[in-house]
Computed example of a mutant assay.
Amino acid sequence: MLTIRVSQLSDIKGCLECLKDSLLADNYFQDTGKVANGIMNAIEKGEVYVASNGEEIIGVMSIDYNGMFGEFPILRLISVKRTHRSKGIGSLMLEYFEKAGFSKSMKIFLCVSDFNTRAKLFYLKKDFMEIGKIQNLYKEGITEFIMMKEKNQE
């Protein structure tokens, strides 16, 4: 059974394993020491969540509830361990972010890199809209697409 919970410092190895062999790692996270420090800082702030199947951590995400314009929740990171991808875990984690984010705001945000075309299609299918782009935000030559989803007014 999959559970999603707030991460603890003891989860750092599992978090790093989820990022391993990912497009994010290939393009942004070459320095594992720097990545580990960043994740540890986010864990200390209570911003990191892990998905676990009871035996191991198989997914990681980071949510900053006031990260977009100091007011709106933003999904800073989401990654599923390579051996568990394409099994619906990312969808469950995104649903968790949506529920948590919409409990605090009518709008939620995320950024997706231009090299991550499968992820962008995934977010579009989940009703996120591309609302802008920023070239060279984190790394020269890479464009980040800003995506937003609004809470349904039913």
Rank of each mutant, 00 (worst) to 15 (best):
residue 34 K to I: 09
residue 74 I to M: 15
residue 8 Q to C: 10
residue 60 V to T: 02
residue 14 G to P: 00
residue 89 I to E: 08
residue 62 S to H: 06
residue 26 D to M: 14
residue 51 A to I: 10
residue 18 C to E: 06
residue 53 N to S: 07
residue 24 L to D: 11
residue 71 E to Y: 08
residue 72 F to P: 15
residue 62 S to N: 11
residue 102 F to A: 12
residue 37 N to K: 13
residue 61 M to I: 08
residue 71 E to F: 01
residue 110 L to F: 02
residue 107 K to F: 03
residue 43 I to C: 04
residue 84 H to W: 12
residue 7 S to H: 09
residue 46 G to D: 13
residue 113 S to P: 06
residue 98 E to Q: 14
residue 41 N to Y: 07
residue 47 E to P: 04
residue 21 D to G: 01
residue 106 M to N: 12
residue 8 Q to M: 13
residue 28 Y to D: 03
residue 18 C to Q: 09
residue 15 C to R: 00
residue 5 R to K: 13
residue 88 G to K: 10
residue 49 Y to M: 05
residue 8 Q to S: 15
residue 66 N to G: 02
residue 99 K to A: 06
residue 17 E to T: 02
residue 8 Q to R: 11
residue 112 V to E: 08
residue 91 S to R: 15
residue 107 K to T: 09
residue 47 E to D: 12
residue 97 F to C: 05
residue 32 T to K: 05
residue 27 N to I: 08
residue 79 S to I: 11
residue 104 K to I: 09
residue 112 V to W: 07
residue 64 D to V: 03
residue 8 Q to K: 14
residue 55 E to M: 03
residue 68 M to N: 08
residue 110 L to R: 12
residue 110 L to Y: 00
residue 18 C to W: 03
residue 101 G to H: 12
residue 27 N to E: 11
residue 103 S to W: 05
residue 98 E to P: 04
residue 41 N to P: 05
residue 41 N to Q: 11
residue 74 I to Y: 05
residue 97 F to K: 14
residue 11 D to W: 04
residue 42 A to Q: 07
residue 102 F to T: 10
residue 50 V to M: 05
residue 31 D to L: 13
residue 103 S to A: 07
residue 69 F to P: 00
residue 11 D to M: 02
residue 108 I to P: 15
residue 7 S to D: 01
residue 45 K to Q: 10
residue 94 L to P: 01
residue 19 L to I: 12
residue 94 L to N: 07
residue 50 V to T: 06
residue 76 R to G: 01
residue 44 E to F: 01
residue 8 Q to E: 15
residue 40 M to H: 05
residue 70 G to E: 02
residue 30 Q to F: 05
residue 26 D to E: 15
residue 24 L to M: 09
residue 72 F to Q: 15
residue 95 E to N: 15
residue 71 E to Q: 05
residue 90 G to L: 10
residue 16 L to Y: 04
residue 74 I to Q: 10
residue 42 A to P: 02
residue 110 L to C: 02
residue 47 E to T: 06
residue 7 S to F: 09
residue 92 L to E: 13
residue 109 F to G: 00
residue 8 Q to Y: 12
residue 46 G to Y: 11
residue 75 L to D: 11
residue 51 A to Q: 01
residue 112 V to S: 08
residue 21 D to P: 05
residue 99 K to M: 09
residue 111 C to Q: 13
residue 31 D to N: 15
residue 91 S to I: 10
residue 41 N to K: 07
residue 62 S to L: 02
residue 37 N to I: 11
residue 107 K to L: 09
residue 24 L to C: 02
residue 73 P to T: 06
residue 97 F to T: 12
residue 10 S to C: 04
